[in-house]
């Protein structure tokens, strides 16, 4: 190891955060560096509807679509859903909807369909819309895209601590493993690549049935999912992820009956703010608007 290289150690975290909990890491102004957007608060909409699942646990497409509409309308401070979407996209835009296909917990198809519907209503041509995950590098719509909509479910993740909106863009690089170092801390760099930078207009973190703990090679057990029945919607991916992460952390603490830090710590959320200027991770820099069902909110 290069003796001259500046190393960030556990002691740096202890100095500024007093303890190495995920809570401190998620909001940490790493090494005194300041987010490019720290001066302005990020608006985050958290919407929950208990009825999004029926008594048999089936997803209600209508309720889900209404949740999306209500959240986007509130986010854009618009009179209605279509006008809100018209603030996000224009008819000439080419829109890539970046989904997630992890088969245990994929982006729900009805949500994908609701996004398609609103994009079309906002005037975007059908042939200029595509939803994709693992094929985005060879997808002609994504290659020509002027706008990206980022939508994925929140879950714990073996290497990055959390599968987040920030991490969802890892498929924009040909060798994702290159970003696995130090708990995927450098994921924010992907958002600065020329074919990605500045295109993301909306981030939707799906919190319908988040996975708050993973076990084994497959990192999945339905025992560690719960019907939170929510969506987190924001223009700022860091703020949305940080909000979701706080909910996941709170759920872990409740479920395990003790503080159970997300492991490994999702360093990439704070780093996306402090190193890459992608948004705000600290709670005091987030304007959280809560809509809908309030029981067991966890935040």
């Amino acid at each position: 190891m290069d003796a001259g290289k500046k190393v960030i150690t556990r002691r740096d975290f202890i100095r500024v955060g007093s303890c190495l909990t995920v809570g401190s890491l998620m909001g940490l102004p790493l090494m005194g560096r300041v987010s490019a957007r720290e001066s302005e608060k990020s608006r985050v909409i958290l919407i929950r509807e208990k009825e999004v699942f029926d008594s048999r646990g089936q997803l209600s497409e209508t309720v889900l679509e209404n949740m999306l509409d209500e959240a986007v309308t509130a986010l854009m401070d618009a009179p209605g859903a279509v006008s809100a979407w018209k603030q996000l996209v224009k008819p000439t835009d080419i829109v890539g909807i970046k989904t997630n296909v992890w088969f245990h917990l994929p982006t729900p198809k009805p949500l994908e369909a609701a996004i398609w519907k609103r994009l079309l209503e906002a005037g975007v041509k059908k042939e200029n819309i595509s939803a994709d995950d693992r094929g985005i590098l060879g997808n002609s719509v994504f290659e020509r895209s002027t706008v990206l909509i980022n939508v994925r479910p929140m879950r714990t993740h073996h290497w990055s601590g959390l599968g987040t909106l920030l991490k969802n863009y890892i498929m924009f690089v040909p060798h994702p493993w290159m970003y696995h170092g130090n708990a995927c801390e450098k994921l924010g760099a992907i958002w600065q690549l020329p074919h990605v930078r500045g295109k993301t207009r909306l981030n939707i973190l799906v919190m319908l049935t988040p996975l708050f703990h993973g076990v084994g090679p497959h990192h999945f057990s339905s025992s560690y999912m719960w019907p939170y029945s929510g969506l987190i919607v924001s223009r700022d991916p860091v703020a949305a992820d940080a909000t979701g992460a706080r909910i996941i952390q709170a759920k872990r603490n409740v479920f395990f009956g003790t503080e159970k830090p997300i492991s490994p710590p999702p360093l990439h959320i704070a780093a996306a703010s402090s190193q890459f200027g992608l948004g705000n991770s600290r709670a005091d820099q987030i304007q959280l608007v809560q809509l809908g069902w309030e029981e067991d909110l966890l935040i």
Binding site: K5, I8, T9, E185, S263
Partner: peptide
């Protein structure tokens, strides 16, 4: 993963 020591 088990005990965060340093990025390097």
């Amino acid at each position: 993963y088990h005990f965060y020591l340093a990025d390097g």
